[in-house]
Computed example of a mutant assay.
Amino acid sequence: MSNGPAGHVARSTVRPHSETTRRTPLRTFLHTGDGVSVDSVYDPAAVVYDSSRPPAGDLVFVVAHGFTGDVDRPHVRRVVEAFTRYGAVVTFSFRGHGASGGRSTVGDREVLDLAAAVRWARELGHTRVVTVGFSMGGSVVLRHAALYRPEGEEREGCEGYEGCEGRAGAHTDVVVSVSAPARWYYRGTAPMRKLHWLVTRPEGRLVGRYGFRTRIHHREWNPVPLSPVEAVPRIAPTPLLIVHGDRDGYFPLDHPRMLAEAAGGHGELWLEPGMGHAEHAADDKLLARIGDWAGAQGG
């Protein structure tokens, strides 16, 4: 859902800062609770001497990309670059994407990939974790936050996942969901009808494998996972931000509004004028606003 943007395509305006230094990223393969290897990258925070912003401290952003993305895609790296000005960043390729193992389940078992990345971020010494997901990744961060308790015990609904044992350190402290669907099986737009063809048809899965470096599982969901709109009420009191563009060509505005309604008085909704879909459409000003908002939560 991140390849082929709807609306305008954001271009990076981040420029090297004369008083900014960067350390070498760390790359490794993590292993999920069900045994899938996940290609992961840790980018330390840029050291920016800017008195108008608080220091990055122990803050880390764990970025969950959209469908057909991976850690090496330029639009994913642009998001990483923007967030390193606020804290460290962990990003990873979901199962079936890029160099990661396994096959994509299009948002189901991907919660285990995100849990492994969050644990790694905490093992690296970070105590404040912000999960930021785009499109498919946006649905994953919502479900992950609903399934994993801060004390490391799984919430109701986690028992259906092999390897979802809720070990300590798998929870998030702040959740940001960008361009996410509210419900499954949505086919109301042309891009989503094309995506369903890609996922459900053998010839579509071949296009995914060789055209988008995305290996898609042929099995249907069984059982059907908790939907994003069902997950949202279970996230409180963890801070929640829902971001959506009013020109999103994949999911119209009833999706973010359903999510916001499900959140009730908890969380915030940003409807962005002129914004299209996911990472491609999230410009640097929006990413900076997200970074500022996330840094202010519980800091």
Rank of each mutant, 00 (worst) to 15 (best):
W197E: 09
A263T: 00
H266P: 11
H244K: 02
V243Y: 11
D254V: 15
R247V: 05
N222Y: 10
E220P: 05
H266I: 03
G204P: 07
P228S: 14
R234M: 13
A236N: 05
T238R: 15
T200P: 00
V232I: 11
H217W: 09
I242A: 01
R209S: 06
R234F: 06
Y210V: 08
V229S: 11
L226E: 11
I216H: 01
L259Y: 10
A236P: 02
I242W: 02
A260V: 02
G245W: 01
P237D: 14
P256D: 14
L241V: 07
R257C: 01
D254Y: 10
P256H: 07
P237T: 12
F212M: 01
V243K: 12
P239E: 07
I235K: 04
P228H: 14
P239W: 11
G208T: 06
R205N: 12
G267H: 06
P225H: 06
V243N: 06
Y210E: 02
W197D: 04
S227K: 14
Y250P: 04
R234K: 15
H244W: 03
V229K: 04
P223H: 11
L241E: 04
V199Q: 03
G245H: 03
W197C: 05
E261W: 00
H218A: 10
I235C: 06
P239D: 13
P256C: 12
G245Y: 03
G267L: 03
L253M: 15
G211S: 10
I216A: 04
F212P: 00
W221A: 13
E203W: 15
D246Q: 07
L226G: 07
V207P: 00
I235Y: 02
R234T: 15
V243H: 13
L240Y: 10
P223E: 07
E220V: 08
T200S: 10
P252H: 08
H255M: 12
D248L: 00
V207K: 05
H218Q: 04
V224K: 12
G208K: 13
A236L: 08
P202H: 00
P228W: 10
R257W: 02
P228R: 10
L206K: 01
G211K: 08
H217L: 13
D254S: 10
P237E: 14
G267M: 04
R219V: 02
G204I: 08
A260F: 06
V243E: 04
M258T: 15
L206T: 09
G265Y: 11
S227P: 09
R234N: 09
G204S: 10
L226W: 04
G245A: 03
R201C: 01
R201Q: 05
D254A: 09
R215Q: 11
L198Q: 04
V229Y: 06
P225C: 06
D248N: 04
L198G: 07
H266L: 12
R215W: 13
P225Y: 11
R201N: 07
H244I: 02
P239L: 12
F251Q: 02
D248Y: 01
L226T: 12
L226K: 04
D246S: 06
G245C: 01
D246F: 08
V232M: 13
R215S: 08
H266Q: 12
P228K: 08
L206G: 00
Y250A: 07
G204T: 10
L259P: 07
R205C: 05
A260T: 03
D246N: 07
F212G: 00
L240C: 06
P239A: 13
G245L: 00
T214G: 05
R205E: 10
L259K: 08
P225A: 03
R257V: 04
R201D: 02
I235D: 01
T214A: 15
E261A: 12
M258K: 08
